[in-house]
Design a protein around this nucleic acid. Structure first.
Lengths: 333, 333
DNA sequence: CTGAAAGCGCTTACAG
DNA sequence: CTGAAAGCGCTTACAG
C-alpha cells in the first residue's frame, strides 16, 4: 500500500501538499494539484483511515445496536439498515453494528465503544416507553440521535426523529372513508405502549372529524400475531354493528384480520377495507395486497445522520409523515 | 480521556509497562500489575483503538454488505446479523455495515474499504449462483469468508460455510414419513438456482430412500410469494393423486400452501403435513404454527468469524445441518 | 502557494 | 522484569 510519503516523493512535493490536495485542493496551484493527483492515481493511493482518525480524533463511524427480541418481529429492519448505511455513506461515514443488553444494562457497552473511539456517536432505535438510554448518553455527553420517541416522559433528552403514527392512521381512516366506508374499526395494542396510543389517537381523531362512530370499534391485542389479528377481526364482525373498514396498528395484525375475513367468505377490498402499518415485505406478497403505511426510510435515515453529524444548536424533534401505499385490501383494482 | 502516558505517570511506570499490563500481563510482576491496574481503574482508562490499529494495522472490523433486493424478503436477517455481531464481539471485533451495487460493480467498494483500512476483511452472504465476488476478492488477496456457496462452478474461491439444504429437506421428508405421510410433494423454485436444486435433491433422495413416490409431486414457483405457494398447493391438490405431505423450499411458499389448504377446508397437521424452511418469525406467528427448518445461526456466525479471523492453511468448506422445528402444521398438538 | 516539524496514542523489538 | 526510542500514516498550525 502506498503512503502519503511515497506519493509526495513521486510527485516531488511535500507530504503536506499531498494532504492538502486531498483535503483542501483549493490551496494548491492547479498544475501542482494535477501533478499530485496523477501520482495518487498512479500509485493507487488510499489514505489510511486509522492514521487520519488518530490525528483528527473522529472515526466517522456511527454505532447501531442490532436489536434482538425473540418476541417481536422486525420486518423492515433490512430496509432501515440499508437506508441508514446509504445516508451515512453519503457523508463519508459508516455504520458499526454491535450488540448490547437491553435497557440500562447495555449502557456500559455504548460507553466503551465511544471511549475506545470505535464510534463517534450512536443512532438509537426501537425506543421503549421510558427508554433510559437517552438520559444516560446525554449525561455522559456521548453524541446520539433517536429514531423514535421516549413516550410518556415530559421531556426527552436529545434530538429525535420519528414517524407520525397518528397522522398515519388518520390518513388510513380518510382513505377508507373516501372509498365509501362508514364504520371504521381500529385493531391495536394495549395503550401501555406510547406508539399504540399514538396510532389509536390518530384513528379516533380522524373518525370524529368525519363524524364517524368510534364506540365499540376498538380491539386491543395482547400480542402482535396473525392469530391475535384474526381474533380481533372475528370479535368486530360478531358485534351487533360490524365495521366495513379496519385500520390495524401493524401489518401482522392486518394480515390476521384479512385471513379471518377471507375465512368467513368476505372479500377484502370489496366488502370491507383493511389497512396495515409499516408496508413490510409481506404486504406485497399476499393477495389481495395489503394497503399499508410506509415509513419514509430514506428521509428518516438522512435526517438521523444529518442531525447526528452536524447537530444544530438546540435539540431537533422531527416528525415525518408516513405514506399510504394503496393495494387491493382497501381498493379493489 | 486518559492516555497510556497518564496512566504510566500515575502508576509510576513506563508506558510500555502499562501497554504490557493490557496486552501481555504475564510479563509483569504481580505487584506491578496490580499497581498498574489500579491506576487504569482509577483513571478509567480505555485504550484508543485508532492508535492501536495504526500501529498493528489491524482494525478488528469486518465488513458486511447490507443486502437490498426489493424482490426478495429476508426474514431472518436480523437473526443473522445479531449472531454475526455476537460472534465478532466474542473475538473483540465488530461488524462494519456498508452498501454496494450487486455483483462485480460493487467490488471497488469492497476494495476501497479494505485499502483505506476500514476493515480487515469481509463476510459475504446472499451468494448468487456464479457470484463473481469471491474470485475478485481472492485475486486481490482481500480476506473474506462466504456464507453460502457459489453454485454451479467446479471450484469455489476461498472458504465457505453453508447450511446443508439437501439434508434439511431430507429431514423434513423423514419427519413427515414418521408421522404417517406417504405421498410427499415438494414446492420449490426453478432449478436455475443452486439453492433450489440442492433442496429439491434432498427431498428426492429421501423419498427414494423411503420408497416414496416422487413423480408428479414437484411444483416450481416462479416467485417466492404466498400466492405462488397457494397456487402450487392448489395444483397438487387438484392432481389425480394429491399428496398428504408438502415440503416447501421456503416459509413463504409453505405459508401460501397452508392458506390454500385452510381455504379448502383441510386441517394442516391433520389431513396433510406441511414444512417450510428458515424458521422465520412468521412460522411461529401463524396458527397452526409452521414446522420449519432452522438454520443454526449462532454456529454459522461463529464458524464464519473463526475461519475469517484465524484462517487455517487450506480453504474451509463447512456444511452445517439445519434443525427441524416441529409445530402444528405437521404434527397436531 | 509550499514545506519542515510536531504530534495524535499506541505497540514493538531491543537493551539493560 | 522494566524502560528509552522508534515509528505506524496521517493532519495541523506555523513559517517562509
Amino acid at each position: 500500500m502506498a503512503t502519503l510519503k511515497q506519493v509526495a516523493a513521486h510527485a516531488e512535493v511535500s507530504v503536506q501538499t499531498v494532504s492538502n490536495a486531498l483535503n483542501a485542493p483549493h490551496r494548491l496551484r492547479p498544475d501542482t494539484l494535477a501533478r499530485v493527483n496523477r501520482s495518487i492515481e498512479l500509485l493507487n493511493y488510499r489514505p489510511n483511515r486509522n492514521a487520519r482518525s488518530l490525528r483528527t480524533s473522529a472515526v466517522e463511524l456511527i454505532g447501531y445496536c442490532v436489536p434482538s427480541w425473540p418476541n417481536r418481529t422486525h420486518l423492515v429492519m433490512d430496509q432501515f439498515l440499508h437506508a441508514l448505511c446509504a445516508a451515512a455513506e453519503s457523508t463519508g461515514r459508516h455504520i458499526l453494528l454491535f450488540t448490547a443488553p437491553p435497557g440500562v444494562d447495555g449502557m456500559p457497552v455504548y460507553d466503551d465503544l465511544h471511549a475506545r473511539r470505535l464510534v463517534d456517536g450512536f443512532v438509537l432505535s426501537q425506543t421503549e416507553t421510558r427508554d433510559p438510554r437517552h438520559g444516560w448518553l446525554k449525561e455522559k455527553q456521548i453524541p446520539f440521535i433517536s429514531f423514535g420517541r421516549v413516550w410518556k416522559e415530559s421531556t426527552q433528552p436529545g434530538s429525535w426523529v420519528d414517524v407520525d403514527g397518528a397522522a398515519g392512521t388518520a390518513l388510513a381512516v380518510r382513505h377508507l372513508h373516501e372509498t365509501g366506508r362508514r364504520r371504521i374499526a381500529f385493531i391495536g395494542w394495549p395503550t401501555t405502549s406510547g406508539l399504540a396510543e399514538d396510532r389509536l389517537d390518530g384513528w379516533r381523531t380522524a373518525c370524529e372529524a368525519l363524524d364517524l362512530p368510534t364506540n365499540g370499534l376498538t380491539v386491543h391485542c395482547p400480542e402482535d400475531t396473525l392469530d391475535a389479528g384474526a381474533r380481533a377481526a372475528a370479535q368486530l364482525l360478531d358485534s351487533p354493528q360490524p365495521p366495513d373498514g379496519i385500520v390495524a396498528l401493524s401489518d401482522i395484525l392486518a394480515l390476521g384480520a384479512l385471513r379471518e375475513l377471507t375465512r368467513r367468505g368476505h372479500t377484502p377490498g370489496v366488502d370491507i377495507g383493511v389497512t396495515g402499518f409499516d408496508d413490510s415485505p409481506l404486504a406485497d406478497v399476499v393477495s389481495p395486497g395489503l394497503t399499508s403505511l410506509r415509513q419514509p426510510m430514506d428521509d428518516i435515515a438522512a435526517e438521523l445522520i444529518t442531525v447526528l453529524t452536524d447537530p444544530p444548536a438546540g435539540p431537533v424533534e422531527r416528525l415525518l409523515l408516513p405514506e399510504l401505499i394503496v393495494r387491493g385490501s382497501s381498493a379493489p383494482g
